[in-house]
Design a protein around this nucleic acid. Structure first.
Lengths: 205, 205, 205, 205
DNA sequence: GATGAATGAGCTTTCATTCAT
DNA sequence: TATGAATGAAAGCTCATTCAT
């Protein structure tokens, strides 16, 4: 069997095992068995448990960021890009729960060097979101200039809200559209306006 | 040394160790050493690693919920209660980073029975917040009746945003007032209104 | 509470615990708790686990030998002494199963120095029985002179048979009289014929 | 080294260690060292201390019963079968003292689930012996019909006597033929008379 | 390309034993 | 006379990792 395919099998097995049991509780035996190969082969291809986990984190991070970028097409109007990005986020996390667990739970909880890896990816996303909401606000209110520190904090809050909603949506289950709509309602309009009857609705494409 | 005191020392050491290294990576040796006692004593008083971790989770959960309740005084007007609750949250998590890590990261990531424990506590908080924003909205817009499903989702989003901001504030560091203000701006007013110049400000006490 | 009484309590608890769980599996905690005292007191009175177990073995050995001597009254005719001795044996072991377990099972299975202790006691009993059957045979067949080596072996067999029947009787339960009668049927009839010169020889193949 | 061979080495080492020191006192380290392998390998092949001990008990039980069956050839006349069975028993126990200790001492003294295992094996032997002496008595005294309860008790006594003599013979040392002859002298002469109607009764006081 | 065989190091847990009072 | 507090030492078990083939 060609190497690339075997490696994919192993990573799949690893993501599933790490995602469900955590980095420490997952044993190399479990992973090798789930992948249908012998343990030495896992070591031959992926070197060590640490390196295997890192590979998982990287692959899943790339996949998530890729999904976000694919959704938030730079050709769209800013507010719509935000909406599409959220939609892509909720869709992807719902479809890849183990990968999402690896990124969101496991990588952040098991110390160095994984935490850093996870933080870097998350920062990339937050930065993206920062830019996105800056653009969207500019679009809506020409001349608006929220200070950058403020923007970063707001982006952090928005990302955290999305992460929390992703979990909630998974447990529901709640369709991605509804989760994304909820978040836009909260973040874009604010609770106050929402209560006053101004529900947010997706702008026309 | 009296038993109660020793037990507190051990829990302190355990929260610190678990919070920093995670449940699996923390060894009972480490904890005992940090507590300044021998390992058998830890077992004599707290029974097992699992039970020790559970005790940590419970203690920190109680402390956090207690801080929130102390802040969000039921005598206050709803919107102000929300604000004070957030303030208490950011203050407490900033002051007890290890306890917060135990609750927010470790307990949720290391399987049963801890996950359930953590989920129960979080649900209690989310429910609280749900009631809080319902009341605040009623106060601001008589007759407003967001459907309950909607409210629950919004509360989840808000709690997630707060958790994310807590981490950001810790890294900053950013004072609790600023983090809480940011979140009220986002959640109460919405980004849109914020950009239009309507910054949210705490209501008079 | 007077020392002698306390010590008896402890030995009672120890015999029960050792008899039921074995020397290694019984913990000093268990014994102290069952005796209703604190552990240091057990050590103060009985010095160590080893010495405590030895004290148990000695006490139970003395009790068993005492019961045998009380039953096998030297004033009786030899054959009757044998019968009464067996009766006393089955009665005592049935009434003190834990003590019997300590002597018969635990002391012999847990290495030095207990094995020696148990062997010494058992040898004393076997010697007694040897003398007893020698006398009984003399009584029945004047002039019969089984060689001493032979006698010792027969006595060993008889004691082993009695031990095995004791276990069987306990499980039955079977009354001591019946067990003793069985053994006399097997052994006496056999011994009697042997003394009369009817040695058994292997049948031709 | 092939797995089967290694496993045999481990069982050999375990039987020796368990037989000499007892189940609890024997440590997995000791066994692994005596077997010339590392501890993890013992666990890999035999799963746990309990399961290792069980494997020892089973193997030794099978070996003993096998030896008995090989000796007590069903083609022989009943009385001779009894004699050959005893001979096989004394020969086997003398040749495998550690295995015999595992079966006779350790398995019965260390609680469940071993006790049951040992009891089952012993019952099988006693049942065999019961049938054997029943047949032998029929052969010697046509029409003799000792009641089954009586027979079972006699068989228990005989087996106990054999066990005790095995120990005595080992300490002697005494050759198997002599031990077996002694036992036949005691038991057969006795049984024979019993079957002929000469039941023993207590002499008058 | 792939694996059966093997291990060093470390973890949780238990227990006999002692001190200070 | 009696005990609450405390520990050194060791046991059972697991796991990431490596040879030899």
């Amino acid at each position: 069997m060609p190497r690339a395919l075997r490696e994919r099998q192993m990573l799949d097995a690893a993501v599933r095992t790490f995602g469900r049991h955590g980095y420490r509780a997952a044993s190399m035996d479990d992973i090798a068995e789930l992948a249908g190969v012998s343990k030495p082969l896992v070591y031959l291809y992926l070197d060590s448990k640490e390196s295997l986990f890192t590979a998982c984190v990287r692959r899943e991070a790339r996949a998530l960021v890729g999904a976000l970028c694919a959704g938030a097409d730079p050709g769209l109007a800013p507010q719509r890009r935000l909406w599409e990005g959220l939609l892509a986020f909720f869709t992807h996390t719902a479809r890849h729960p183990d990968g999402w667990s690896v990124l969101h739970q496991q990588a952040r909880t098991h110390g160095e060097p994984f935490a850093t890896e996870a933080v870097v990816m998350r920062r990339a996303i937050v930065d993206h979101v920062t830019a996105l909401i800056a653009a969207a606000l500019q679009e809506a209110h020409q001349g608006a200039r929220p200070c950058p520190g403020e923007l970063a904090g707001l982006a952090h809050a928005l990302v955290g809200a999305a992460e929390s909603l992703a979990e909630w949506a998974a447990a529901g289950p709640v369709p991605p559209e509804r989760a994304a709509g909820m978040l836009m309602n909260l973040a874009w309009n604010g609770l106050d306006r929402l209560a006053a009857g101004h529900a947010w609705t997706p702008p026309d494409p």
